[in-house]
């Protein structure tokens, strides 16, 4: 390796037209070759709202994962949690882009992320709860990734929108890893020490009341997802708690007190400079 070569390449002028390198080498457009026109007969308002809701789940989850940055228990977890956050951020961007195409406003991803207030967000409430300890974050990730994986597997083959189907198909591979990562940690923590077992029991008790809400629109997935969760809790030597759900639905714009501060932080710079481009 010639070090002079590397220095030269760094000093080269930057071609302003080449915006794509910021995505990384080996970047493949997941929508390459997918017909992006809206199929005839589509209820566009419904499709746009659905893409937004799935995008909101992913954005709020990615924001919570970003809050783990520099606070994770080990460097391997820094890398893994960032990886999962980045996957979800990628899903957000594709889903928001599709919402903007479909709802006829032509809004870009940032309009949805930065210039809507909390009451316009449609994410499930489990995603917005504060991170808590590592046990809570892992338990939440296990639940959300198991649910989203089941949902995306189905969407990939059943939705009539080819773009949403392609986004879901790409997401399936990512979510399978998220679920595996969370399940492995749930087992380690459940089986580990007295303290980790106690923390896992507390986490399950805190997460369980928000699980019913996930199946408000997709009741048929509930048995499948709960079976996965029970399989993990069994392997971890824990019991899946039977608790009463917390009333309300994030999908109706009904949120906990935690969403407003999360969005205030997320939107602060963008809203301070509304005329700026980044």
């Amino acid at each position: 390796m010639s070090d002079d070569h590397v220095y030269l390449s760094l000093a080269e002028g930057h071609d302003d037209s080449d915006a794509r390198w910021a995505f990384g080498t080996g970047f493949e457009d997941p929508l390459h070759g997918v017909d992006q026109s809206v199929p005839e007969g589509t209820d566009t308002a419904q499709l746009a709202a659905y893409c937004l809701a799935l995008g909101d789940d992913a954005l709020v989850s990615a924001q919570r994962l970003a809050q783990w940055c520099t606070a994770a228990p080990e460097l391997e977890e820094e890398v893994a949690l960032a990886n999962i956050g980045l996957d979800l951020l990628g899903q957000t961007r594709l889903l928001y882009a599709r919402a903007g195409q479909v709802d006829g406003t032509g809004r870009g991803e940032d309009a949805y992320a930065y210039f809507r207030d909390a009451d316009a967000f449609r994410n499930v409430r489990l995603a917005e709860l504060p991170n808590g300890d590592f046990a809570f974050s892992i338990t939440r990730l296990l639940v959300l990734s198991s649910w989203r994986l089941a949902l995306f597997e189905r969407l990939a083959v059943t939705t009539s929108d080819p773009v949403l189907a392609a986004i879901a198909a790409k997401g399936v591979k990512e979510l399978a890893y998220h679920r595996q990562y969370a399940a492995e940690w749930a087992v380690r923590l459940g089986d580990g020490t007295e303290e980790s077992q106690r923390r896992m029991r507390d986490a399950l008790a805190a997460v369980a009341p928000y699980v019913d809400e996930l199946f408000a629109e997709t009741g048929e997935l509930k048995a499948e997802v709960l079976a996965v969760l029970r399989q993990v809790t069994d392997a971890a030597g824990l019991a899946w708690p039977e608790t009463a759900p917390v009333p309300g639905h994030g999908r109706d714009g009904d949120h906990t007190e935690h969403l407003v501060p999360l969005l205030t932080e997320l939107q602060s710079v963008a809203r301070a400079h509304p005329e700026a481009t980044w």
């Binding site: 809050q67 951020l89 961007r93 997320l266 710079v269 963008a270 400079h273 980044w278």
Partner: peptide
């Protein structure tokens, strides 16, 4: 990261 002004 949590405050970056665009998703990109």
């Amino acid at each position: 990261i949590t405050r970056a002004p665009s998703l990109r």
